[in-house]
């Protein structure tokens, strides 16, 4: 009993320490953001005269309204299409077991670990030749393709465990394949689909490389790409940079805190399966 109580205490202290380390960068961003713009505050020191005005200034400098809109548009482009296509393909491969399912599946698995840097160069020229540089499509279309291996993999893992009898009985009622998919399998797949949606949202929102290479205008980028541009432009003004970074973080944090349980579950499952 004594050992286990000591263990519990060590555990608690360790956890608190770990949380402190995790939160330290956020705290530092926050405190620094309150210093007068243009200064180089040393370490963690509460400013004599907290400059709350840095936040509205950064909001304006970063053009936050536009950024939010842009990121939202990109997410709206990527996530629904990826989910629909990924679910359909996962259904066909995992449940219908189309002819050649194994080969196709391997083809998709091939892309699971692909580092985006590996294809960014040809992607640039491809997007340029399609006339899509500097449009949101330059981020949306490639991301759908790049997330497809995971989406298919994820949905296949769900459908492969669906009992075949489910479809058999539906077929007896005269449902065609599409109805079978739409009316029976999609509703049953909702938990898998929503986890996938969360992961895709997060990865799209935070996508950096594609944004900085394919889109010059920060107002047409993802949040992460826009933050890169903000750093590029305001990196010389540390308090403003910190304020801007925090603002750009806020939407993700809010959504994360609202849906934290789903997030944690999705991320844990996501990495287990991927």
């Amino acid at each position: 009993m004594i050992t286990s109580r000591r263990e519990a205490w060590t555990g608690r202290v360790l956890l608190i320490f770990l949380m402190a380390v995790t939160l330290l960068p956020f705290l530092s961003l926050f405190v620094t953001a309150l210093h007068p713009s243009g200064t180089y505050p040393a370490g963690l020191a509460w400013p004599d005269d907290p400059q709350w005005g840095n936040f509205p200034r950064a909001f304006e400098a970063a053009n936050m309204g536009e950024l939010l809109k842009s990121s939202a548009l990109i997410v709206l482009g990527v996530v629904p299409i990826s989910i629909v296509l990924g679910t359909m393909a996962g259904f066909a491969i995992g449940h219908l077991r189309v002819i050649g399912a194994r080969v196709i599946f391997l083809l998709f698995v091939l892309g699971l670990t692909l580092p985006f840097e590996g294809v960014i160069t040809p992607l640039y020229y491809q997007i340029r030749d399609m006339g899509l540089l500097n449009t949101r499509w330059a981020i949306i279309l490639p991301l759908i393709g790049l997330f497809m291996p995971f989406s298919v993999f994820w949905m296949r893992a769900h459908f492969v465990n669906m009992p075949g009898e489910l479809s058999e009985s539906a077929r007896m009622d005269g449902a065609n394949v599409w109805q079978l998919f739409r009316r029976i399998h999609v509703p049953l797949a909702m938990p898998a689909i929503s986890s996938l949606g969360i992961l895709l949202f997060l990865w799209t929102w935070n996508q950096f490389l594609l944004a900085i290479v394919l889109v010059d205008d920060p107002a047409k980028r993802t949040m992460s790409g826009a933050l890169g541009a903000f750093q590029g432009q305001w990196g010389t003004d540390i308090p403003l940079l910190c304020a801007g970074s925090l603002l750009i973080l806020t939407p993700t944090l809010v959504i994360f805190l609202l849906f934290q349980r789903h997030f944690v579950k999705a991320l844990l499952q996501g990495s287990l399966k991927g």
Partner: peptide, 25 residues
């Protein structure tokens, strides 16, 4: 469902994957 119809389900995903991943690779 294992033939043409099934393939119709896979095709859109495959096309995106081919155009934006396999081709660049």
């Amino acid at each position: 469902p294992r033939g043409l119809v099934g393939w119709l389900f896979v095709a859109p995903a495959l096309i995106f994957y081919a155009v934006f991943v396999l081709r660049p690779i």
